[in-house]
Design a protein around this nucleic acid. Structure first.
Ligand code: SF4
Ligand code: SF4
Lengths: 133, 133
DNA sequence: TCAATTATGGACTTTATGTGCCCATAATAA
DNA sequence: TTATTATGGGCACATAAAGTCCATAATTGA
């Protein structure tokens, strides 16, 4: 029960892009160096963010990634869900009726965390960070 | 990023014990059957609960497990921590100063969930459950 | 048009963790 | 003493995370 490193990389990349000249492209090489992660691995993560509609990519020389227009509204939760998926943290195979209290408690707990993360916008946090990374 | 099955087993065992004649011992065999899990595996989990001071065990014929006296105060969070440990869900190896905002946000989010789980007492939930398991 | 650069995607290996089993040992009751 | 039950170490298996490699596509610039 831990957040994956991939989520960490994704969050940091998004925050870095938020504090980067907008519309300017930056390649996976430089993003990877900054986080001390292999470019090939980070590449997979970035592709997920692209598919989630948070960033856009451009191939070819001088290509790279940049935030999409709606980025100011993206929350921590959005990034986490893009990487880890949106399935419940507590998945019980059995199905003892819809009034199962255990699941209810666990799902409610998870929602408490998600409600908070939903309100943590990347733009707000990036603004407050003095040094990025 | 999922709660382990072990946590699921632990929670269900505790809830079952809460709705069981107090001071009466029940063996791992019967507990395991009820949850459709191997006794040997459940045994390890129960030992963790013993070490966490939530239940007590008795060896020998007619031995088994039962709740300890203080059990009414035990929360979901206590059980989860006993099984999964209490380390932060978001552990960043790097240490970019104590004012790291990313960690702050993630830890705060986790605390939201924990605050909720801390207030879910086993005794309360067990009382509300019509049928146990 | 050609070569260099960059992202994408598939397949793979490695590593870590969770899940589960087996057996030896200790403790207790009959 | 024997049967029963928990404990603990070690091992095996399954699953997922983390990371690598390479082929392909898209774009730029010469
Ligand atoms: S009671 Fe709920 S959580 Fe427990 S096994 Fe049944 S469905 Fe799953
Ligand atoms: S900024 Fe915080 S979360 Fe990010 S790498 Fe540094 S210590 Fe870790």
């Amino acid at each position: 029960m831990k957040f994956s490193k991939a989520t960490n990389y994704a969050l940091h990349t998004m925050l870095f892009l938020a504090a980067f000249p907008p519309n300017k492209l930056i390649g996976v090489q430089q993003l990877a160096e900054r986080q001390e992660v292999s470019p090939t691995y980070l590449s997979k993560i970035l592709t997920k963010l692209v598919k989630a509609g948070m960033i856009e990519s451009t191939s070819g020389a001088n290509g790279g990634y940049r935030l999409k227009r709606n980025w100011e509204e993206i929350s921590f939760l959005d990034v986490i869900h893009a990487i880890e998926g949106s399935a419940s943290l507590f998945d019980c195979e059995m199905n003892h009726g819809s009034e199962c209290l255990v699941q209810k408690v666990m799902v409610s707990a998870e929602e408490k965390m998600e409600d908070f993360l939903k309100n943590q916008k990347l733009s707000e946090i990036a603004k407050k960070m003095t040094v990025v990374l």
